[in-house]
Design a protein around this nucleic acid. Sequence first.
DNA 1: ACCTGAACACCGTTCAAGT
DNA 2: ACCTGAACACCGTTCAAGT
Lengths: 234, 234
Amino acid sequence: MTDSTPRRRVRAGRPALSREHIVEAALSVLRAEGLSKVTMRRVAQELDTGQASLYAHVANTAALHAAILDELTAGVESERSGTWDNRLESLLFAYSRVLFTYPGLARSALVLRPMGQHTLRLIDRVLELLLEGGIAPDRAAWGVDLLLQHVTATAAEHAPPAPGERADREGAGTADASLAAAIREADPERTPRVAAMACELLSGPHEVRESWAIRALLHGIAGTPVRGAEAAPF
Amino acid sequence: MTDSTPRRRVRAGRPALSREHIVEAALSVLRAEGLSKVTMRRVAQELDTGQASLYAHVANTAALHAAILDELTAGVESERSGTWDNRLESLLFAYSRVLFTYPGLARSALVLRPMGQHTLRLIDRVLELLLEGGIAPDRAAWGVDLLLQHVTATAAEHAPPAPGERADREGAGTADASLAAAIREADPERTPRVAAMACELLSGPHEVRESWAIRALLHGIAGTPVRGAEAAPF
DNA sequence: ACCTGAACACCGTTCAAGT
DNA sequence: ACCTGAACACCGTTCAAGT
């Protein structure tokens, strides 16, 4: 907004570097080649400059990834009709879809804790829906974290390797499969319950489990007092 | 396992390399220098060999990290007395303590999904306690995931930078602080609820929030039917 | 079958020097 | 103030050659 006169000197058509341009370039690299290629070097190359130039606008690689995720969060919206809890679920699913599209980003998100404007909007919207559902403000405030954490962690866990993200012979994609194998082959002596309940542990398509999880979270958030040390009624 | 030997005393007479020796060496590097130093090169150096040698016993770096975490999980146990839910909470806290000690490991755990014998034991124990609490088996089976996911994600989010894990001027440690700042400075126009509830959003010491979260999860798991598509009663 | 040195193909970040 | 090339200090993984 400050520079209305782009001084394109070296090479025609090359605008001055800016945080905005950098994030834009990073996004295009992300879409084309996956998060593993969103490196300072690769993004700088995309902008026809040296990697060192980016550090004037972005603190480090983690900050760049956080900025990307916040940008992608801009498009996350809930359905406009339906009950509050259905709209909330659709909002979380929309966010989940972004994270599943770029699993590497989901994996970083828990650490990055991106707090850009779009992420704040998302938090605000979740809060709004929880309050609309009549959930006590103090429980709603603590519940937001729980809901977004769950969605993010789930994407990090279950999302397939994705575009250019090392789909090796045994990448992150087989994590689910090897987990299933480990549970199915559980020793009935050492881990009797896992062995006995292998079926239940591995049952259900992802969507159904996810829907259950969100309902369980809402149920727990709504029904668990913040102050009282007394046990919740089971 | 004996540790706290500053110099490589491991493989004194250079016995054959084995997966066990490698994990042991990796653990000692972890304890001394943090996860970021648990690299194929550094561990190989610890064993006085070339990095390529490790690949005969460990698939890749991720597998090595998973093996380490499973090993650390061996010591995780619940208190022996108290109500089932208090014992469960103590079990989760014990696991949490391991993850908080090596935050980098927590950060990887969601992706790694380590499924060694000790992790299976932990799952078995959680299942046992849920069933003891009278929670329906199908809900308990799906609930285990939710509980362990939460603990892991929380450690990944909130754990401080730790030993040798890049405690830079703006490492992962300030994530919490910058998040707090972002919420406190939230624009009342764009994000009115975040601005209005900043206090509630940021309130409470970690332990209290964590205890609330686990109670909320248990409450939700116990009270949310797996099959029924009907909304849970709020 | 296991072990090894060396190489390949990358990283993030810093810094002195330019403009 | 911004930009740059070059360098520093690392990575994971592969591979041909050894034993």
